[in-house]
Amino acid sequence: MLRSLNSGISGLRSHQTMLDTTGNNIANVNTAGFKGQTTQFQDTLSQMRQGATGAADTTGGGNPAQVGLGVQVAGTSTNFTQGSAQSTGRATDMMISGDGFFVLQKGGEQILSRAGNFDFDARGRLVSPDGGIVQGRMAVNGQLPAGGGLQDIVLPLGLTAPGAATTTAGVQGNLPRGAAVGETRTLDREIFRADGSSDTLQLTFTRTASGWGVNGSSAGGTGNATLTQNAAGALNGGTLNVGGVAVDLSGLTGYAGLDTASIGEQNGTAAGVLQTYTLGADGALTGRFSNGAQQVIGQIMLGQVANPAGLEKVGSSGYALTANSGAMGLLTPGTAGVGTLAGGMLEMSNVDLSQEFTNLIVAQRGFQANARIITTSDEVLQELTNLKR
């Protein structure tokens, strides 16, 4: 049987694989994080018709005479170039600008992915559409651990930030110089205990012949101070300690005609409930709480391998490690080599439609040409069978 028949069949099979690969690329042109593939061909074994001969004094050397036996698919290579960015406005959508991969935990196996279209499940875990749990590090009391293994990224419902005790407060404004001796001014300000419960800081200012006397009180204790007034109306404000709260009186003045004294800022807070969060370029998830506090909740980590082309596609835009991909290293976003994270954006497919349609034409013509090999070989065999007539 003619060798060309087998060569033609191998060509049909190989170009069919090229058509399959190209069709898959085109089908995933709108798949977030998809990386296109190309088909690589190589020839098969060649049949030796005549071996090579060495050169002699009286004769020249001869080259080998070989006949090829067709083509085969050497492999498919994945193109990991960066896809275009698409703004979605969703806080849970994330895009890697660099060469890193999201690390997902699914069924006890670690999966790498470039698709950042995540959402939260009923347990508050950040997950991919097929249920892979995004991995990273969770903060403890607002502090990220220096090392350790990967953890599920979780933003539980009702997450609270602890309250903070008030330790400082400030008084500003003006106490009227024309107030009569013995006249008082009372100022109140809500402050907080260490457990986040509310307390009241009360300051009573009593006019004296030389200035003002100050009496402070709260549930934590009391304190007293004296403010001396000079001829220009300035007060020698200092610091008054009231039950562990250092009250700064230096912002007070004592000019005539103004009665504007008030207790301004204090540094305590009540306990707060998580209201929203933001994603930093370093992968840190920072929560904003109802008490105004901002606290790091966790940090998304990125994976990196020495040979991304050696990764194995496992579906759902995921990749698994192989013997040729190398071991996975875990790095913080922003580290050289893995890239940074951008929230509210997705990396789209890197498929170039113009190139894919060109490949489609090339594959089609290659398929047709190999089909012609078979029909031509069939005609030759037909001629041989007709010799008997």
Rank of each mutant, 00 (worst) to 15 (best):
Gly75Tyr: 10
Gly70Lys: 00
Asn117Ile: 04
Ser87Met: 05
Thr88Trp: 02
Gln66His: 05
Met95Ile: 09
Ala85Cys: 06
Ala55Glu: 05
Ser84Ala: 09
Gly61Met: 01
Ala122Leu: 10
Asn117Gln: 04
Pro64Asn: 14
Ala115Met: 04
Gly70Pro: 11
Thr59Pro: 06
Thr76Asp: 06
Val103Lys: 00
Leu112Pro: 10
Val67His: 05
Asp99Trp: 04
Gly83Ile: 03
Thr78Trp: 04
Gly89Ile: 12
Val103Thr: 11
Ala74Gln: 08
Thr78Ala: 06
Thr58Val: 07
Gly61His: 00
Thr81Ser: 15
Ser113Asp: 03
Gly51Met: 09
Gln72Asn: 04
Gly116His: 01
Lys106Val: 10
Thr76Gly: 07
Thr81Tyr: 06
Gly107Ser: 12
Thr59Phe: 10
Gly100Gln: 12
Ala74Pro: 13
Val71Cys: 01
Met94Val: 10
Thr78Tyr: 10
Val103Glu: 01
Met95Gly: 10
Ser87Trp: 00
Pro64Leu: 05
Phe101Asp: 02
Ile96Leu: 11
Ser84Asn: 08
Asp119Glu: 13
Thr81Gly: 15
Lys106Asp: 14
Gly89Thr: 09
Phe118Lys: 10
Asp99Gly: 11
Gly62Tyr: 09
Asn117Leu: 01
Gly100Tyr: 02
Gly61Asn: 09
Phe80Trp: 13
Ser84Cys: 06
Ser84Tyr: 03
Ala115Lys: 01
Leu69Pro: 03
Ser87Arg: 03
Asp121Met: 12
Thr78Met: 08
Ser77Cys: 05
Asp99Asn: 15
Ser97Arg: 13
Gln72Ser: 08
Gly61Ser: 13
Asp57Phe: 10
Ser113His: 01
Asn117Lys: 03
Phe80Asn: 08
Gln86Lys: 04
Lys106Met: 11
Gln47Arg: 12
Arg49Phe: 07
Gln47Trp: 08
Phe101Thr: 02
Ala65Glu: 06
Asn63Pro: 14
Gly51Pro: 11
Gln82Ala: 09
Arg90Met: 11
Ser84Trp: 05
Ala115Gly: 13
Ile96Ala: 00
Ala85Asn: 15
Leu112Ile: 03
Gln66Val: 07
Met48Glu: 04
Phe118Asn: 04
Asp93Gln: 02
Val71His: 00
Asp57Val: 14
Phe80Ser: 07
Gln82Asp: 09
Ala85Gly: 13
Arg49Val: 12
Pro64Ile: 05
Ala56Arg: 08
Phe102Arg: 00
Gly75Gln: 08
Val67Lys: 08
Asp119Gly: 15
Gly68Val: 04
Asp93Pro: 10
Gly98Tyr: 03
Ala56Glu: 08
Val103Gln: 03
Glu109His: 10
Thr88Gly: 08
Gly100Pro: 06
Ser97Glu: 11
Asp99Glu: 14
Ile96Phe: 03
Pro64Gly: 11
Phe102Glu: 00
Asn79Val: 13
Pro64Trp: 07
Val73Asp: 01
Phe120Trp: 13
Gln110His: 15
Gly60Cys: 04
Arg90Gly: 00
Glu109Phe: 04
Asp119Val: 15
Ser113Trp: 00
Gln105Asp: 14
Lys106Ile: 12
Gly70Met: 01
Gln105Pro: 01
Ser97Asn: 14
Met94Pro: 01
Gly70Ala: 03
Asn79Tyr: 08
Gln50Gly: 11
Gly51Ala: 14
Phe80Glu: 13
Ala74Glu: 05
Ala115Asn: 02
Asn79Ser: 11
Gly100Ile: 04
Ala52Arg: 15
Arg49Ile: 12
Gln66Leu: 11
Gln110Ala: 15
Glu109Trp: 02
Arg114Trp: 05
Ala56Gly: 01
Gly75His: 07
